[in-house]
């Protein structure tokens, strides 16, 4: 089962992806698991992706499916994108669909 660490605060869900790779080997299970989490939460989601070192188009498809499962009014913010993950969002123009804050503002 894909490892996801969920921190539920009053205002939002913080989900840390503990997998190094979101690829075809886990994309379907990852999608189902994350969709369950965000649908149960019904609140804005912050996804911590700093540990994800590789994502392919099946992983991207899983992310898009989760975005579509969430009501449009609820933000899904992707934080800590590594270069390999950022590349896939950028090349497919999906960086315009997701809420991806610039790296410099993510320092805490």
């Amino acid at each position: 089962m894909p490892k996801l660490t969920v921190t539920d605060t009053e205002a939002q869900l913080l989900v840390a992806i503990e997998e190094a790779r979101i690829d075809a080997a886990i994309a379907t299970r990852f999608k189902d698991r994350l969709r369950d989490i965000v649908l149960r939460g019904r609140k804005p989601v912050r996804l911590d992706m700093r540990r994800v070192d590789f994502m392919d188009s099946s992983g991207l498809g899983a992310m898009i499916a989760v975005r579509k499962a969430l009501p449009e009014a609820l933000p899904l913010v992707l934080e800590g994108l590594t270069p390999n993950v950022e590349r896939v969002f950028r090349l497919t123009r999906m960086d315009t669909v997701f809420d991806i804050p610039p790296a410099a503002t993510q320092q805490e």
Partner: peptide, 19 residues
């Protein structure tokens, strides 16, 4: 090119050969 980017019905696949 990329699959059509319909904001109301985003494509979940069709990116592989484009990449």
């Amino acid at each position: 090119g990329l699959p059509a980017l319909d904001p109301l019905d985003l494509p979940e696949g069709g990116f592989g050969w484009f990449l």
